[in-house]
Design a protein around this nucleic acid. Sequence first.
DNA 1: CTCCAAATTTGGTGTGACTGCAAGCTTGTA
DNA 2: TACAAGCTTGCAGTCACACCAAATTTGGAG
Lengths: 211, 211
Amino acid sequence: MDEGLRERKKRQTRRRIADMAMGLFMARGFDQVTVAEVARAADVSVNTVFNYFGTKEDLFLDRQEEVEDLQSRVVRERGKGESVVAAFRRDFMEAIEERDWRYGLNEGADVFGRLVGDSPSLLARFRELEHAQTQRLARTLAEESGAAPDDLTPSLVAAQILETTRLLSRHATARTLAGESWAEIVPQLRSQAEQAFDLLEKGISGYCVRV
Amino acid sequence: MDEGLRERKKRQTRRRIADMAMGLFMARGFDQVTVAEVARAADVSVNTVFNYFGTKEDLFLDRQEEVEDLQSRVVRERGKGESVVAAFRRDFMEAIEERDWRYGLNEGADVFGRLVGDSPSLLARFRELEHAQTQRLARTLAEESGAAPDDLTPSLVAAQILETTRLLSRHATARTLAGESWAEIVPQLRSQAEQAFDLLEKGISGYCVRV
DNA sequence: CTCCAAATTTGGTGTGACTGCAAGCTTGTA
DNA sequence: TACAAGCTTGCAGTCACACCAAATTTGGAG
């Protein structure tokens, strides 16, 4: 009823375009692939590609948006007596062990990062997504704490937390890209993370503790 | 000797292009002005515009780069016994009183911000500049503290400090753009800044204190 | 099954940023 | 005064992306 032929075909087409695009990007780099090539590979017209994806960059960063929700969930599902930073600290430390993709720690995240870094336009779009994530988290924090509309604390805290996790992840993937094995990175990453979160907590550990 | 006719003319042309461009942008918005129009207004060919400015965005954000140096100077010229955050706190509080342009607090910064915010491409380039500023500050901090190459603390501190000042400035200019007078904003801004820096200091006040 | 209306795809056409090249003009220098 | 280096320009081309009208496909009514 809510899954007609039409809907199915649309999702198929969308996936086919995205997959073909990703394949080409991985093989030759983002800037070296034209939208026309992607269209040809997916056997659709260029216009159809732009029907599904607003920009060429969206072809690459399609799945990245769902991260927003997962981050807000970390806040909402924190335990009693646990501060927001503490929740993120716990979540991030777990993520290290599991090579969680939410923080860009998964296998292949380095190639991903390399591709992004090699394309100015892609990098720009990626930063935009990061910014959106930060704002989303800030809004969640504002709701959770019932902050006044021009209280900047939620935005400040959101920015500091996410900037911390991003720096940690980036550093780690940069090292895998430099040839180091994940096994030898993990111990250092753990201690760097502890250190980074210590830095954070001393300042904001009292913020928004759930009763 | 080092200031021939050639050099002078080049600087004149560059200024003329940048000025004409800024005028058109202010009047009609960034995206509504084509490079061809800028070229015509400055009485040069389109190619010449791209000879001086790598991208259209650089026409607008030309002077923004020198902010980098000024921020590093804040660190280097801090007093004895003064931490890095303390130095920025002092500098920013002074900047509020003087409506300093380094933090985007000057008169007209709101129009500037509006223009940037209305153009996706300009916003993207602006974020790139912010990122470069952060990295620059991080490098300065690393030098000042003699940190190990894979110590993330300098980057973390740089990001947190600059993100704080940016949020404060943005909030202030957003309010002037909303019609509020600078006089009624300043008191609130002062207290917001105190609050924001308190948040920071509790975490990083002990970092890199000059002996 | 048939026909219609809505959604989707497509080709065509156009704009605007940006690149590369070769020719022309200007400036510094011998 | 002539030559070389540097700057400017026109021209042609690429690519992302917008707009539009025609063609195709699909869902549903009769």
